[in-house]
């Protein structure tokens, strides 16, 4: 064995050849994968997670299962659907003591719903997303007995868009979907809208 390396580069040996061949094969494989993907890239812009309100069963997992605390799922208010009811079944507990903003009457555990008088007998209901924890208590009340203008949506200014959504995994209604990045919300509309 020489203690000084020989100045001439070693000839391409069998091992080197094998390596080059494998690399070429791997590159071809990756190229094929790219090609395959390219044939189906019409919507390859990416996805985000979203809730289909029609499938939501208001189980409350959105509040607890999200990796974020508080959850990235919030209740939203679709004003065109809202009945602006005085007795809002999303705002008030069943059999409310009085139709006022007293804590004993509110269904929201964090008082995230704001009740604003508009004109007799209509009230506007707004969600304070900083307070909302996505527990869906109001959604259940509004959907079961009202117009269903309250519903849950993944808020994309908060959502981390995990590769695997940890709420989707446990969603009792199988309501979570990957929706195209370009159309990231499932907004409820009425039939005549």
């Amino acid at each position: 064995m020489p203690d000084v390396p020989s100045s001439t580069p070693p000839p391409v040996n069998r091992r080197q050849f094998l390596r080059d061949g494998t690399r070429l094969a791997a590159m071809t494989g990756l190229g094929a994968l790219l090609g395959l993907a390219a044939t189906r890239t019409s919507t390859a812009r990416g996805y985000v997670w979203q809730i289909d309100p029609a499938r939501c069963v208001y189980c409350g997992n959105c509040a607890t299962a999200c990796v974020l605390k508080p959850s990235a799922v919030k209740c939203v208010q679709s004003y065109p659907i809202c009945g602006y009811c005085d007795l809002c079944t999303g705002y008030f507990v069943p059999e409310p003591n009085g139709l006022n903003t007293g804590a004993e009457n509110q269904v929201c555990p964090t008082a995230a719903i704001e009740r604003v008088f508009i004109e007799d007998p209509y009230y506007e209901y707004n969600i304070d997303e900083d307070l909302c924890i996505g527990c869906a208590k109001c959604v259940e009340g509004c959907t079961r007995f009202g117009n269903g203008s309250f519903y849950l949506q993944v808020r994309h200014d908060r959502c981390l868009n995990c590769n695997e959504c940890s709420i989707a995994r446990v969603c009792a209604g199988d309501a979570f979907r990957r929706v195209p990045l370009t159309d990231p919300y499932v907004i409820k509309t009425t039939a005549h809208e």
């Binding site: 003591n97 007293g102 804590a103 004993e104 555990p109 964090t110 008082a111």
Partner: peptide, 14 residues
């Protein structure tokens, strides 16, 4: 009185 209690407790809890 009960209403007042509820409101107070609710505030504390939140």
């Amino acid at each position: 009185q009960l209403k007042t209690d509820i409101r107070q407790l609710d505030l504390v809890l939140r």
